[in-house]
Simulated assay, not measured.
Amino acid sequence: MTLEKRALALAEHKRNNRDAVTMEDLDISLQNDIFIRGDDFAAFVPMLQGFPSDCWIVKENILNSTFEEKYIFCLFRAVSNMVRISYGSEYPPTVMVNNDGSESTFKKKMQHLEDYMTYRKLPRELHARIREYYKARYEGQWINEKSTLSLVSRSLREEILMVMCGNLLKNCPMFQNSDIHFISAIILKLKYEVLLEGDVIIQQNAPGDRMFFIKHGQVIVETSSFQEELCDGGHFGEITLLAREGQGATVRALLTCRLFSLSIDDFDQVLQEYPDAMNIQSEQRSEE
């Protein structure tokens, strides 16, 4: 029995039982025929639906055309779908695209991570924290932001990052009166980081290598005689950039935190490009 006759027989059976046709209803050989003969598949669904008025076959006015004309149209639509063209057609085909690419990649990465942790026999608690970090860091979507931003021009990259974290710098006194070009250069150096609840971000008296800006989250800054909580829009660790001294307090994440960090090396590199910005440091020291 031909593909068309088998498909029509199935459709007639389902109509008699007032049921819908799904791919699960097709036997394996019929499914294979459909996918192998992709040109026929362009007309398969409309045929099962009884050629409704809004289907492409009716709109293209080929319902009563010869078999050869129908076949050529189906072949054209199948090829159009693959190469994403629709020249000469008033009703172009809908391109089927996998919209779950980043989610699928994330799941594969998570599975690879699970396999690694099992192979290394990591403790259950550490296992759970690593899994929690990945979920918080990528939020179910595996997107390489650095690679993605490299695909756009520098000016567009600056604009994107300015939207993402421009207000964080504006809230920081050491950058409030800075030249816009200096701010743009600083923004390009910021690194995105995720810290989990309970993580020690800065240890008192330990040497530091960067300062932090809080995009989302909450931290506690504490010494033996002082405590202060910071949340969205806050910053800490600037003593590292200004005085190059050990950290004056311990900073711990109270919630999962999404931060941007600026390292000493990156800060110094920007200062070399904008030497006049050095007065920021002297002004800050005089205020202290």
Score class of each variant (00 low, 15 high):
M1T: 14
T2P: 06
L3T: 06
E4Q: 13
R6T: 04
A9W: 01
A11G: 06
A11S: 08
N16Y: 01
N17V: 00
R18G: 08
D19A: 15
D19Q: 15
A20T: 14
V21M: 05
T22E: 11
E24L: 12
L26C: 04
L26Q: 01
D27C: 13
D27A: 08
N32W: 08
R37M: 03
G38S: 14
G38D: 14
F44T: 03
M47A: 10
G50Y: 10
G50E: 09
F51W: 11
I57Q: 04
E60R: 03
I62M: 08
E69T: 03
C74P: 09
C74R: 15
L75F: 10
L75W: 11
S80C: 12
V83L: 09
S86G: 09
Y91P: 00
V95F: 09
N98T: 00
T105K: 03
H112W: 10
E125S: 13
L126E: 05
R129Q: 11
R129K: 13
Y134M: 01
K135G: 04
R137A: 12
Y138N: 04
E158N: 12
I160C: 02
M162C: 08
M164I: 00
M164L: 00
N167G: 05
N167T: 07
L168G: 05
K170M: 13
M174S: 05
Q176H: 00
Q176W: 00
N177V: 05
I180H: 06
H181R: 15
I186D: 15
L190R: 15
K191Y: 10
Y192H: 04
L196N: 01
I201P: 01
A206E: 10
P207R: 13
I214A: 05
T223C: 13
E228C: 07
D232M: 00
G234V: 11
F236M: 02
E238Q: 14
E238Y: 13
A243C: 15
E245D: 14
G246E: 15
G246W: 13
Q247Y: 14
T250W: 06
T250E: 12
L255Y: 10
T256Y: 04
R258L: 01
F260W: 12
F260N: 05
L262Q: 12
D266Y: 13
D266N: 14
D266E: 13
F267A: 09
Q269I: 07
L271Y: 08
L271M: 13
Q281R: 15
Q284W: 14
E287F: 08
